[in-house]
Write a protein that binds this DNA or RNA. Structure first.
Lengths: 346, 346
DNA sequence: GTGAAAGCGCTAACAT
DNA sequence: ATGTTAGCGCTTTCAC
């Protein structure tokens, strides 16, 4: 049994397909009597009618599909949260998400081809998500379509973008430490030249300054943002006689390294050393002991924001064209677990 | 400028739309001269022609969309790997993946509704993925469509399914330990009544038996498969005077707990204690020190397998209807890092 | 307040 | 070897 079509509904309701279409689409200023509407709605429900999206798409030239071009879906749970947010928001607007994975930093025309694949599939718009916050130059054919960037900014400043409020997150983290009573706060930073490196550092300095704590450059170390380098840095920093009482780490992996260093040095967390991380990677943060207090990245929220913005763009709301100017900043909330306490009285 | 249609190509090539359609679709036993074909192809390329998928779908009643219904996309990286595999395989067959997230164990008709949402969107088939290996009963409306289960089996045995070869993975893990010289091997098992619990245990016993190592039930402990319970179990098992020289852990999180227990007891891994995990959660396994030797779950491969099977199903290849009988088992390879060594000579 | 009919871009049965 | 044409299921203009 093939599923019901609009004419089946029309027939059952004893009206024309036109009327059915009007009623079911709530066509603005249609003129259909209340009883007729009820009859049509009832007939549709009885038959379990749902419109054929392909026919609709063909006719209206709107597929209802939105493409999500994402880097490295597989590597981190972050992509999952973006997808989830985007997909939930899409459903609200009766849009469907189609996903294409793309290589990071793939050479040549790879991204161009991925965008093309999406265009070939008649997507109405595209979401372009990178796996860490950075500045990108977009494939030229992305210009043909409404688009929104997630977790990166358009080098050319044309496409609206949404990124985490890195500074705000770092401020929240370091403030938390300061409010617990710490004044000697080490910072284990990333050494890549990416926005997060500079912005989290800026947040760190900002808090010190706000609390009149002198900035001490001997407390700031940089290395690749992995567990092992984090460990190495922490060993060094914590081995000193004037060791800091707290550590702010660029990310949870570095914090994991710091945990190990602390353990080896006989420092108990949080009694002897407070630590806060960044990224809120559940697998790490929730499974360390004690649980790592860290800053969450708003991946879910960025997914939602991006779809909402796309919807506005699709509706042609002019003001949204302008928001490309400045990327939207989304809150990075602090997630408190058990790795922060007052510094030990000396 | 709206994109070229088939008649533009026809006009440019000086042929009819039929011919263009035949040529571009490589329609079986069409009769078109070689020169004409070339002319058509060239015209298509010149115009940058790509068929309108919506029109195609409407006409052929095949959308080229396949729905992936996945639980908890956001929670683990596992979903990402399934998506990636499925998406790569889909692209090979010119299929597009549309993703819907669904709640785990959602009550009532929720899964039914999710499947319906996919059907409403004219997907040709659906992939149904759960986040851990188990047996499920499927929403009734899934029967209307070709479907394949990923990481779970159909209680009713109707739908083809693919799951990890848990026994094989456990065998590989424990064999690795035995071959390193261990004979007292503890097992930290999950205490949930899920297939993996029983199958990994079966693999463990199987290896012991194959090597004439007597099974000692005092070496097997169960608890929820989290870090903290893993820690507790390991403390207990390793605190004994006749402690095992190696631990096989149900998953990497429990192994992470075991690492902590070992550290606290002054046991150095792998010198004093060898550990093997399961799941290969990179974030944990690669970031522990030393790196955790563990067993990888074939999520990517299951995604690929599922799409390939779906394609066969869609082509109506009868034999594939039968494979629902027995779920396909995919290899769980051992990933060797640094947590296994010979037992220390006494 | 309602309906007839054109047509979105394509495929495929049927002519020629 | 190539062309004509109906029609997929819907929206929308226009007529009544």
């Amino acid at each position: 049994m093939k599923s019901a079509g609009i004419r089946d509904v029309a027939q059952l309701a004893g009206v024309s397909v036109t009327t059915v279409s009007h009623v079911l689409n709530d066509t603005p200023n249609m003129r259909v009597s209340v009883e007729t509407r009820a009859r049509v709605r009832h007939a549709a429900k009885t038959l379990g009618y749902g419109p054929n999206r392909m026919a609709q798409a063909l006719r209206t030239n709107r597929s209802g599909l939105i493409g999500l071009l994402s880097e490295e879906i597989a590597t981190t749970p972050h992509a999952g949260r973006i997808i989830l947010g985007a997909q939930n928001a899409a459903r609200e607007h009766d849009l469907t998400l189609v996903i294409i994975n793309t290589e990071r930093d793939a050479g040549g025309t790879s991204h161009r081809d991925d965008v093309q694949a999406l265009i070939d599939r008649q997507v109405d718009a595209v979401l372009y998500a990178t796996m860490y916050h950075r500045s990108v130059s977009l494939p030229p054919n992305l210009q043909d379509l409404p688009a929104v960037l997630i977790d990166s900014t358009d080098r050319a400043g044309i496409v609206p973008a949404v990124v985490p409020d890195e500074v705000g997150g770092a401020v929240a983290a370091v403030t938390h430490l300061v409010e617990a009573g710490h004044t000697r706060i080490g910072f284990l930073n990333n050494d890549d030249d990416v926005p997060a490196t500079h912005l989290r550092f800026a947040g760190y300095r900002q808090v010190l300054q706000a609390h009149d704590i002198p900035f001490d450059e001997d407390l700031v170390f940089s290395a690749p943002s992995e567990t092992l380098p984090g460990y190495g840095l922490a060993r060094e920093l914590l081995g000193r006689s004037d060791r800091p009482t707290a550590l702010f780490c660029y990310n949870d992996r570095m914090a994991m390294g710091a945990y190990r260093a602390a353990t080896e040095l006989g420092l108990e967390i949080p009694r002897d050393l407070s630590i806060v991380g960044f990224d809120n990677q559940e697998l790490i943060a929730a499974n360390l002991f004690p649980g790592l207090t860290t800053v969450a990245l708003p991946h879910y929220e960025m997914g939602v924001w991006a779809v909402e913005t796309l919807v506005h763009l699709l509706h042609g709301e002019a003001e949204y064209r302008l928001i490309a100017d400045k990327p939207a900043l989304l809150d990075c909330p602090l997630v408190i677990r058990g790795s922060v306490a007052q510094p030990r009285a000396n």
